[in-house]
């Protein structure tokens, strides 16, 4: 990876920060993701599509910062150390690489 595609203007960065700082928004994201995404009028159609399709490769190619991309994966798949966060990082890596080859079997 490199910073070549990185675009700090992407609205998805604000989405992650807002989810991180606002538990109520996080709950709404779980219940009605579209309603939360609607709050970001500058979000590019391709950016929104990538989030909806869980296509992190496409999102990163549009310019998503990987640290915030990793956090987005935890809002979607889980955040607890021994369970959801492992699921999230596994799915994130599979989306980014198109492969599960680098994912450890345990824990």
């Amino acid at each position: 990876m490199s910073w070549e595609a990185y675009d700090p203007s992407l609205a998805a960065h604000d989405l992650v920060q807002d989810l991180k700082w606002d538990p109520a928004l996080r709950a709404l994201f779980k219940q009605n993701e579209a309603a939360v995404l609607d709050r970001y009028p500058t979000m590019l159609p391709a950016e929104r599509r990538a989030i909806e399709q869980r296509d992190f490769r496409a999102l990163y190619d549009l310019g998503m910062h990987p640290y915030l991309g990793g956090q987005l994966s935890r809002f979607i798949w889980g955040n607890d150390a021994g369970g959801g966060a492992i699921e999230a990082s596994n799915r994130l890596v599979a989306s980014l690489t198109g492969s599960t080859a680098s994912i450890p079997e345990k824990p």
Partner: peptide
């Protein structure tokens, strides 16, 4: 480490 990146486990 590469948090959130393609090499998360590398």
């Amino acid at each position: 480490h590469e948090p959130g990146g393609a090499r998360y486990y590398k």
